[in-house]
């Protein structure tokens, strides 16, 4: 009697062909297959496949690879690759320390020079503003042209 709804997965039948199932699992599967035409048919196909594989003709290279490989190893002086040993942490860092110090120094000097330049620009801007104030539309002496002028002249 077949009950496809309770049929095992194909991988269980495949494992059965490989003798990879033991104990109660195997007994239960054997019992199911004995009463299920669908599983019995698939199991027969899987077993037939195994049988056909055993009939595959053997193939031999007809070559002695040992001498070929040995010649390649000798010709290329190939030696087994060894794992590189990890260097101590301190050894790793000290060679880059001068470069790091140089980098930090360069940045510091750059920042200092940049800020000095900015300060110089601010100082130079103030007289220019004062000079431009004399050419505004307001005639000199009529009104105070700007707060800076008053401050600059002390009025």
């Amino acid at each position: 009697m077949s009950d496809a709804g309770k049929c095992p997965k194909t991988e269980a039948l495949s494992a059965l062909v490989d003798d990879e199932l033991v104990g109660s699992v195997r007994h239960a599967l054997d019992a199911h297959v004995a009463g299920c035409a669908i599983c019995a048919s698939l199991l027969a196909e899987l077993r037939q496949l195994r049988t056909t594989f055993t009939a595959l003709p053997d193939v031999a290279p007809g070559v002695d690879f040992a001498s070929l490989v040995d010649r390649r190893i000798a010709a290329a002086a190939v030696v087994p690759k060894t794992e590189p040993k990890l260097r101590p942490q301190s050894w790793y860092w000290w060679p880059v320390a001068p470069a790091a110090f140089g980098g930090v120094l360069s940045l510091s000097v750059g920042a200092y020079l940049g800020s000095a330049l900015m300060l110089g620009t601010q100082v130079a801007e103030q007289p220019a503003a004062l000079q431009m104030a004399a050419f505004t539309a307001i005639p000199p002496g009529a009104l105070c042209p700007g707060l800076q002028v008053c401050n600059a002249t002390g009025r």
Binding site: D58, V59, V63, F65
Partner: peptide, 25 residues
């Protein structure tokens, strides 16, 4: 072979060469 004995490695090659070749073929 790990100690650098190439003859020992050749013995390993002879043992497995047919299987490896067959598989790759």
């Amino acid at each position: 072979a790990q100690a650098g004995d190439r003859k020992a490695f050749s013995e390993l090659v002879r043992r497995h060469q047919d299987h490896v070749y067959r598989y790759l073929l």
